[in-house]
Structures are given as structure tokens and as C-alpha cells.
């Protein structure tokens, strides 16, 4: 079943940094309703969320994401490990993963694309730019492309 155009997408953000989380949520608020963006604080929580392990078994409260915004440097399970695990699970591997990180190292870019990420975005320096980036993400993944759903 294909998703229809113009339907707001569900975004899951894996970000350990409170400030960044706040800024990302603030930025997405400009274009998306609040409930369309959910957050987890590390790779471990992300996997639990996707596998519907408690406390993420409430589908109402924790809806299935259309795309994942994944920070690379996180405690417990970092972004690379989480990405590898997602891409190794059949039911999850079709969800586009966008790497959203402070890193701009060539190494990180190459390995994460090889591992199956869909995009690699370096966190912008100002809030204004962040808003622009979240708008583009929202636009692209909800309007330009078709998602597996």
C-alpha cells in the first residue's frame, strides 16, 4: 500500500543531546504538528521502539515512523550500531534512515551510506539553517518521494 501525497510523515528522532533534541523539535514545529515527531535518547531505545518492546508497545503513543533521524554519537548503542541492526532486521530495513550528526568526516559518510543509510546531514550552525533543513526533509520525504509505509 502506497502512502498518499501530502500526508504528514511520522518522524522518529534518535538524539541523546537535550539541546539538540529541543532545537530539532522546535524546528519541525514550524511545518509539522507536534505529535508527528517522536524522540528516543539512544540507539538502544531506538531499537526497543522499533521492535515494540516496552515501554514502546503503545502504538498510539509511539506510532510507526516513516523515517528515522539518527545521531551517530550516542551513549550505550551509538548510531552506527543502531543502523547496522536496523538494516539487519527484515521488517525494519526498508525504513529510510537519515544520519543527522555533527560529524562531517569522509569516513562516517562513506561507511554509513554503505551500511544503508538514505542521507547524511551535518547539523547546521544556526537555528535558521536548521529550520531550512527540517523543512527540506519534511518536504522531500513527504512530497517528493514515495515511502514504503
Amino acid at each position: 500500500m502506497l502512502m498518499s501525497f501530502e500526508k504528514p510523515i511520522q518522524i522518529l528522532v534518535a538524539e541523546d543531546d537535550e539541546d539538540d533534541k529541543l532545537l530539532i523539535l522546535k524546528a519541525f514545529e514550524r511545518t509539522l504538528p507536534k505529535e508527528k515527531v517522536t524522540c528516543v535518547e539512544d540507539g538502544e531505545a531506538l531499537l526497543k521502539y522499533l521492535k515494540r518492546n516496552p515501554p514502546y508497545d503503545d502504538l498510539e503513543k509511539y506510532p510507526k515512523p516513516d523515517i528515522i533521524l539518527l545521531d551517530l554519537n550516542m551513549p550505550r548503542k551509538d548510531g552506527r550500531e543502531a543502523l547496522a541492526e536496523i538494516k539487519s532486521i527484515d521488517e525494519l530495513k526498508s525504513i529510510p534512515v537519515i544520519i543527522f550528526t555533527t560529524s562531517n568526516s569522509v569516513d562516517d559518510i562513506q561507511t554509513t551510506y554503505k551500511m544503508g543509510s538514505s542521507s547524511f546531514i551535518t547539523k547546521p550552525g544556526s537555528f535558521e539553517e536548521l529550520v531550512k533543513v527540517t523543512e527540506e526533509i519534511e518536504n522531500y520525504w513527504s512530497k517528493t518521494v514515495l515511502l514504503p509505509g
Binding site: 539538540d20 532545537l23 547546521p124 544556526s126 537555528f127 536548521l130
Partner: peptide, 17 residues
Amino acid sequence: LQEPLRKITAFSDLLKE
């Protein structure tokens, strides 16, 4: 150092806005 700076910039942007 870029990390906290990015946040200072972002929050002061937000504040200004």
C-alpha cells in the same frame, strides 16, 4: 568546541526570533 557554539548560536537565534 563547535558543538556548544552551534547551540549558543541556535538558541540565541531562537531567542532573537
